[in-house]
């Protein structure tokens, strides 16, 4: 199986110069400038197969955007190799650019005072789409995103969410094979966020497209992504499936128990299985370590008449929080 994306030992530092104001100053700065080095990405490696849904998460300034920019060829890596669809992104070959899309949450690519349709026509010609292909794709996208009625309104009259949709259409009418999305749902209301998530899942299903997205909303990751990359201070600290992540870092399950009127729960006994979060005679909420799940169920079944039992996964937000508090020690101890 050939990999769609191969990143090996990627390093990217920003050398920020003090940009000067004034003509003479800028002329001298052309030749000699004060340097400041910001380490954005240090030694990241991972591989991706076609069709994967990947969530790229980490705190602000962790290096997510920087990594994406290296993957699409906007930034020149300091060292390491990046290969996307067999291309070196920085060469920005036509055939490469036609197969990828980079959706930037806060940037408008659209002509502000013109209807989105005009931008789409420009895209059609730049990507050399046939009229029928263009119409078909555009229709499909407008259906998925419910955008038909906004096509001919000047972009500046659209709401933030509608503009995000317009933006997504710009990037997808040419049916890219890989989709990079940098915080696609930022600033959108809940309904719109859901719409975008559903859309991404659908697009992935229909086109077998690879999707890599960064987000601050764990809901994005939870509902869209199968695989998670966690990055912190420019280093990759987790790479694996969402399921494994929960398995590794969230060793508890939440039990919500209700017993029938004949019985009374034994709090002291319950607390041997895990942390009792709330309790009254008939109900209890307990955080149970995975190892003890079996025992607890056995105990409950043998001793009580169970009216209701609900066993929940902790949500991803909780898991990620745990990752960031525990991962450093684990890395140091080298036992994972």
């Amino acid at each position: 199986m050939t990999k769609t994306i191969k990143v090996a030992n990627l390093v990217k530092n920003y050398i920020t110069y003090e940009k000067n104001t004034g003509f003479l100053a800028s002329l001298t700065s052309f030749f000699h400038r004060k340097k400041k080095i910001v380490k954005a990405v240090s030694d990241i490696s991972f591989e991706v197969e076609q069709g994967e849904l990947i969530g790229f998460i980490g705190p602000n300034g962790a290096g997510k955007t920087t990594t994406l920019k290296c993957l699409v060829g906007l930034l020149y890596p300091d060292s390491g190799t990046v290969s996307v669809l067999g291309f070196n992104p920085f060469e920005r070959k036509k055939e490469f650019l036609k197969q990828i899309a980079f959706v930037m949450g806060r940037k408008a690519q659209l002509y502000w005072d013109l209807p989105a349709m005009e931008t789409y026509m420009l895209v059609r010609d730049m990507y050399q789409l046939s009229e029928s292909e263009f119409k078909k794709n555009l229709n499909e996208l407008c259906d998925l995103l419910d955008f038909h009625k906004y096509l001919n309104r000047p972009v500046r009259t659209l709401s933030l969410g509608q503009r995000m949709k317009a933006e997504i259409i710009t990037n997808l009418v040419y049916k890219p094979k890989i989709l990079f999305l940098d915080e696609p749902t930022i600033g959108l209301d809940v309904v719109m966020q859901d719409a975008i998530r559903d859309f991404l899942l659908n697009y992935n299903k229909i086109n077998k497209a690879t999707i890599i997205l960064t987000s601050h909303y764990m809901e994005d990751i939870e509902s869209v992504c199968d695989r998670i990359l966690i990055i912190d201070h420019g280093k990759l600290i987790y790479d694996g499936s969402k399921f494994d992540l929960k398995f590794k870092y969230a060793r508890e399950k939440e039990f919500n128990i209700r017993v029938s009127y004949k019985h009374k729960l034994d709090k002291a006994r319950l607390s041997q299985f895990g942390k009792v979060l709330s309790y009254d005679a008939k109900t209890a909420r307990i955080l149970v370590d995975k190892d003890k799940v079996n025992n607890l169920i056995k105990y409950l079944v043998e001793n009580y008449d169970i009216a209701d039992l609900d066993i929940k996964e902790p949500d991803i937000k909780y898991v990620i929080k745990k990752v960031f508090t525990s991962v450093k020690d684990e890395v140091d101890n080298n036992n994972y």
């Binding site: 110069y17 940009k19 000067n20 104001t21 004034g22 800028s26 052309f30 400038r33």
Partner: peptide, 14 residues
């Protein structure tokens, strides 16, 4: 020159 300075306006005007 924009790659090296934020104020291209001045050289441009000049």
């Amino acid at each position: 020159l924009g790659f090296w300075t934020n104020s291209v306006w001045a050289p441009r005007f000049l």
